[in-house]
Design a protein around this nucleic acid. Structure first.
Length: 631
RNA sequence: GGUCCCGUAGCUCAGCUGGAUAGAGCACCUGCCUUCUAAGCAGGCGGUCUUUGGUUCGAAUCCAAACGGGAUCACCA
């Protein structure tokens, strides 16, 4: 409609404005709620050209559109704005066309190139937490949005299944797990613990012992006992403790940290963990068996958590596989002269020319680091999916620097697709008590949180009734739908880029700007439609303003999908649907629908309701949220 | 310290490709269930859009600086 108006003005520009104008000068915006109108033409850009007052110009264009072109039924000029009113038939036609499109808002599948979306990417040494929930819901949702926008999507994750961290858990379990009466160490089977939780427990155990040993070492050093430490360590300690003299508190704390680091590096337990890593990279059978066993436990635990989250993956990548290619790439880079080797054998890249630092790619003991395997993973993926138009990495913004460097290195290695890699950088999730810190035990466990929101949905839903005649199974499904819907909506309604506050009390709220608010609207409509039976055909009827507002909002849906897809932002869709539901609730409360006496009005209102439900279900689907038919 | 991100109502967030009197939710107050699900609706209260400059007919929105908060700069991931 706006396009038709725009062209009408452009085609008659000489008559209206006295000169031809560029299409960019015809600017529309949404009409403010307090004025009548369906769209608003901004007159300011045209005023200068026409050389008349905004008022006169508005009158002239308005009259032209109304009387000559009969595109609008009414108009008003307020300030520099021309508010235009569309004929009712336009809205009826719009609703009819939306109603006829079962996939309304979505582009044809496969109409856009393939994209890979990476999300989750956990370490296998600890269970998933609240931060992973934001990550998983976000990644899954972006994948769904891109699908709706017409892309083929490959959902993936990189599983950080190797490295020093998992060696720490392995060591702690091997050396410190108590034996039961059968002489077995703790396993998920004999303890009933979830696999990822059990392995996480031993990671914590390692950390405890590690810190204790470091503390002992610092005490020994403080007492002048340097028996058994190598000379460089002792020299450094002497240097640091001398530096403590005469410094202010802050500087002293900094130096103390360095001493602690020194002590940590001198521990036997860390040396043993490092030794495990070297043996693992050398494929030592004993270490490998321990590793596959413990990772197996973790995967079982993760799969359970993913199932509850309602996320899935099309393809998995394991660092234990991709790091090998990563190492090859490092050698390739050395030959090309992109990287350089230090005397101690470690490999680096100099990025000072790009205003970044020197970055490590291979340790002096030859083992690989995060960057090494990420290089391998990226190349692997483009080898596996040559038609990929890009990879989206859903990773926290604490790793902004890492990805900047990663993409830059890929480019320097000559991979032209490096530019098509995008870091979907999302903000941290804070708690009312502040940051989540594993050391302080303030980490919110993903499984626990999901259980809590479902439990809370159970209580609150049972209180409200509406459950008559449902089987136990149906009730359980409903509680899960509401609990998880609320949690997902809470985490997705905020702009991904922004840091957000997670208030547990607010996340289980059912009123206001929440997932259950939207789900409830859907359930009410379904109830209405069930009672209504077949909707009769209708031809012409008057429209209330509240009905027009809803049709307008519905008509925006395809643009909203596009905007969400281009900005990788589920929040755009979350807020859109909330607006739609608010408009619908106003309408629902102010007119009769099923009980309307006028047959045409009743049919139109039911059709409108049906399409609101359709868009609610579709848009919530893009967020990974299911909507119930009753609640 | 270098680099990057953020600052809108008491709280949590929209609005940011420049346009009219800056919007929601929560909290607090007042109404509305003998009619389609009140997890709802209507209304009230609440703002120096951190500050100061600049660009512009017009700035919460763009630019610069200051202040405040966060992240990152590891042979951690």
């Amino acid at each position: 409609m706006e396009n038709t108006i725009k062209h009408a003005i452009l085609d008659n520009a000489t008559a209206l404005l006295g000169t031809t104008v560029d299409a960019s000068m015809i600017q529309f915006q949404k009409t403010r709620k307090d004025f009548a109108g369906d769209t608003t033409l901004v007159l300011f850009p045209l005023v200068k050209l026409a050389g008349t007052s905004p008022q006169q110009l508005g009158e002239r264009i308005g009259t032209f559109l109304k009387d000559e072109q009969q595109l609008v039924t009414d108009f008003s000029v307020i300030g520099g704005f021309l508010n235009l009113v569309y004929p009712t038939s336009h809205w009826l036609d719009t609703l009819r066309s939306i109603d006829g499109d079962t996939r309304f808002g979505m582009q044809p599948a496969g109409s856009k190139p393939a994209i890979m979306v990476e999300y989750s990417s956990p370490n296998t040494n600890k269970p998933l937490h609240l931060g992973h929930l934001r990550n998983n819901f976000l990644g899954y949702s972006v994948a769904e949005i891109l699908k709706a926008y017409g892309h083929d999507v490959v959902k993936t994750q990189i599983i950080n299944d190797r490295g020093i961290h998992i060696c720490k858990s392995m060591l702690a379990w091997r050396d410190f797990s108590p034996l039961n009466e059968k002489g077995e160490r703790e396993t998920p089977a004999n303890t009933g613990m979830k696999g990822d939780k059990l392995v996480g427990k031993y990671y914590v155990e390692f950390d405890k012992r590690f810190n204790a040993e470091a503390k002992t070492i610092m005490e020994r050093w403080a007492n002048g006992d340097f028996e058994g430490f190598d000379k460089t360590t002792i020299d450094k300690y002497v240097e640091f403790s001398a530096a403590l003299e005469g410094k202010d508190e802050k500087a002293q704390a900094g130096i103390q940290d360095k001493i602690k680091e020194l002590a940590k590096n001198a521990t036997n337990i860390l040396r043993e963990a490092k030794d495990l890593l070297v043996r693992w990279e050398g494929r030592d059978p004993e270490v490998y068996l321990l590793w596959t066993t413990m990772n197996g436990w973790v995967y079982e635990g993760f799969n359970e958590t993913y199932a509850k989250m309602g996320v899935d993956f099309d393809r998995l990548y394991y660092e234990s596989e991709t790091f090998i290619l990563g190492k090859d790439l490092v050698n390739e880079g050395l030959e090309k002269g992109v990287f350089y080797r230090k005397d101690d054998g470690s490999v680096w890249i100099d990025l000072t020319g790009d205003k970044l630092d020197h970055k490590l790619l291979l340790r002096s003991d030859g083992t690989s680091v995060y960057m090494t395997q990420d290089l391998g993973t990226a190349v692997d993926r483009f080898n596996d999916y040559p038609n990929l138009s890009g990879i989206i990495y859903t990773v926290g913004n604490e790793q902004d620097y890492h990805f900047k460097v990663l993409f830059l290195i890929l480019k320097k290695l000559g991979y032209s697709w490096a530019d098509a890699c995008f870091h979907l950088s999302y903000g941290m999730v804070d708690l009312p008590s502040g940051k989540m810190k594993s050391r302080e035990g303030t980490v919110v466990d993903a499984d626990d949180l999901m259980d809590e929101v479902i439990e809370s949905a159970r209580e609150m839903t049972s209180e409200r009734g509406h459950l008559e005649g449902m089987t136990e199974e149906e009730k359980e499904t409903l509680f899960r739908t509401i609990g998880m819907g609320g949690l997902k909506y809470f985490l997705l309604k905020v702009d991904p880029k922004k840091r957000m506050l997670f208030d547990p009390a607010e996340s289980i709220e059912l009123n206001g700007h929440t997932g259950p608010f939207i789900q409830y609207a859907h359930a009410r409509i379904q109830s209405l439609l069930t009672k209504a039976g077949t909707i009769e055909a209708y031809d012409n009827t008057e429209l209330e303003q509240s009905e027009i507002e809803i049709v307008k909002q519905l008509a925006d849906y395809p643009k909203v999908i596009e905007e969400a897809a281009l900005s990788y932002s589920p929040a755009v869709i979350a807020n859109y649907t909330y607006e739609l539901v608010k408009l619908y609730n106003q309408f629902y409360q102010s007119v009769n629908i099923n009980q309307e006496a006028d047959a045409a009005k009743r049919a139109m209102r039911l059709t409108l309701s049906r399409n609101v439900a359709k868009v609610i279900a579709s848009s919530m689907g893009c967020l990974g949220i299911t909507v119930p038919d009753r609640m």
